[in-house]
Every structure is written in structure tokens, then in C-alpha cells.
Simulated scan of single mutants.
Amino acid sequence: MSITKGDRLEAERVRPRSRSPFRSRTAVWAAAGLVAVLLGFVLLSLLIGTGSSSAARAWDYLRGDPSARADAQLRLAVLEVRLPRTLAAVLVGVCLGTAGCLLQAATRNPLAETGLLGVNSGAAFAVVLGLTFFGATSSSALLLWALVGGMAASAVVLLFAASGRTAGSPLRLVLAGSALGATFHGMTSYVLLGTQSTYDTYRYWTIGSLAGVETSDLLPLLPVVAVGLLIALGCARPLSALGLGDDSARSLGHRPGRVRLLVAAAVSLLAGCAVAVAGPIAFLGLLAPYAARALAGARMAAQLVLSALIAADVMILADILARIVIRPWETPVSVLLAFVGGPLLVWIARSSRLSTAGAAA
């Protein structure tokens, strides 16, 4: 039997494609460029600070100059102040970028962000409880309370979203997160009304900053972040199928409800760690995935990697600018991101491409 031209075209259409997440040269070069930029920003972050130690002296310390290494104040500035907050900026950026990309893909909503699952409001309420009733005043204690609160809020949202006939649906996840977030916000305001001292500390935490972060605060979070990233990578292929619609995903052997619940769990882990370290950071988890989609197209694994790198670059750049904008004081990172993110969000919302900017197809 002869093979027609139509048969050859059909065979070419259904032929399995490469499993590499980077099938586009654009995505490969973008990832390489973002890594190079990140390394440059890391170096710049170690050189620049609000203190009296100059960038030239910090460079001498990094390259091993004996006189610089003998300077105890310089060592404190580079290793005890700038290095921890640099690592924290990278960690927070990777977490928010990955979580935002996952959430937008799972809900097929390009304007979705990590606050939808109630992580921010749950963390804020837990911090207020720790400050008011348990005397939690150290940075490590606040970090622990924020992490537990964010995880607990997400767990409640997941339990609610997993029940009923529409278990795991995007609408159910968003409604559960929004309702719980509003509830926690009201409870937080009620507790703060009667405690002025708690409000002063809470106001500093909720404004969003990396100042005062220590390396010892970050180490316990690394296993949690690693689990969240592994779940995210494991969900890449199912999320690509979900972009075609739930019915198409089922025909390919995936279970949309279970996939979305796994995504929500990963988002909870990643966003909870980010909020615990830096407080609520707006816009970053929304804008980084949008830029990643422009570079990677519909390839979900590439979107996840690029979104994490973009968010890390933006976060560390914002932290550098926070130290020098009103030197010798600091500007909260969240304020700088809001100045940039607000106008960009308006532009995205008005863009004619919004309807096609959804999650991976």
C-alpha cells in the first residue's frame, strides 16, 4: 500500500518531540543571559551597602587582599550583612517566580499571584499572634511564625478545595484562598487594634525588606524550598496538558484536580518560605511568569526555569537599589517593586495579548 503525502504529514504531526525543556534557542540564550546577570548582581550586592565600607575595599576583601581580610569591620559588612541578604534575595526570587508561574498555569489566569492561596494573610496573622501572645521578637522567631502561618493557611485552602464535586478546580482554589485571606486580614486588624507595640513591629515586617536577615535563618528553609521546587518540576508536563483544557488533559492520562492540588502544595511551600524571609512581596510572582512566557512560549518547564531566574534577578536588583536610593537609610524592597510593578500591571491588563497570555498550552 502506497503512503500518501497526507499520511506523511500526519505522521510528522504526531511524532514525539524532544523532551528537552529548552527546544528554542531563545529560551537557551535567555537562561544563560539571566544566569550571567544574576552572578553580576550577586557580586554587586556584596560590594554595595549602606555602611561606611566602600565598594573598593569590599572588592579587595573578596579577592583576598591581606589588609582587607584583617579589617574586622569590613569582614562583618561583607560576610555577616551583605552575603546573607544576597542569598535571601536569590532564595525569595526563585520561590516567588516559581510559585507565580505554577499558580498562573494551574488557574489559567495570567493575573494570578501567590496571595490567592492565603499564604500572605496567614503568615501575617501568625506573626501578629506570635508578637502579641508569645513574645516572639527575634527575626528567627518571626520567620518561624510566618512560615507556620503561611503553611497552615494553605492547608486549610487545600482541604476546602479538595472537597466537593468540583475538587481541585481553579475557581474553587481562588475562592477558598480569597475568603480565607479576607478572614485572616480581619482577625489581624482586630488583634492589632489593642496592641500598639505589636503594631510597630508588625508594620516593619509587613513592609517587606531583607534587612537583618541572617544565614542561620535561611538554612532551615532550604529543604522546604527543595521539596517545593521538585514538586514544581514534576508538575511541568501535566500543567502543559492542562493548558489544552481539562478534558484534553484527562484524555492524555492526567488528573486535573490532583495536579492542581499538587501545584497548590508547591506554591504553599515556596510562597510560605518567601514570605517568612522577606514579608509580603507584591507583583514579583505576577510579573516574572509573564516575562518568562514571552521568552519560552508554551514550554512549561522552560517557563518555570526562566521565571525563577527573572524573579531572582529582579529581587536582588531591587535590594541593591534599596540600599542606595535614600542612602544612608534603606528603602523597603516591596516599595521599589510596587513602583515598577504597578504601572506594568496596568499595561498587562490593558494589553491585547492578555487573553493569550495564559498558562502553558
Rank of each mutant, 00 (worst) to 15 (best):
S2W: 11
G6H: 08
A11P: 02
P16D: 00
P16G: 02
S18Y: 07
R19N: 12
V28F: 06
F41R: 10
L44S: 14
S45L: 13
T50S: 15
S53N: 13
S54V: 00
S54N: 03
W59C: 13
L62C: 09
D71R: 01
Q73M: 09
P84N: 12
L87Y: 06
A88E: 10
L91V: 12
L91C: 08
V94H: 06
V94M: 08
C95W: 01
L96H: 03
T98Y: 04
A99L: 06
C101W: 01
L102P: 06
L103A: 06
A105L: 03
R108Q: 15
L111T: 01
G115D: 00
N120S: 12
G122C: 06
G122L: 03
A123G: 08
A123T: 06
A126K: 05
L131D: 15
L131W: 12
G135F: 11
A141C: 09
L143I: 03
L144D: 07
W145C: 13
V148F: 11
G149S: 09
G150A: 04
S154F: 01
V156I: 08
V157D: 04
A161T: 00
A161M: 02
G164C: 01
A167E: 11
S178M: 01
G181E: 04
A182H: 01
V191F: 15
T198D: 15
T201N: 14
R203Q: 14
I207P: 13
S209Q: 13
G212F: 14
P220H: 05
L221I: 03
A232D: 04
G234F: 13
C235V: 00
L242T: 10
A249C: 07
G253L: 02
G257C: 02
L261G: 04
L261V: 04
V263F: 01
A265L: 14
A266W: 02
V267D: 10
C273R: 03
A278Y: 03
G279I: 11
A288H: 00
A292R: 05
A298T: 11
M300K: 09
L304I: 11
A311S: 13
I316N: 14
A318R: 04
A322P: 01
A322Q: 01
T331C: 04
V333P: 12
V335R: 04
L337K: 05
V340S: 11
G342S: 10
P343S: 00
L344F: 05
L344V: 01
L345A: 06
R353K: 14
R353A: 15
T356W: 10
A359E: 10
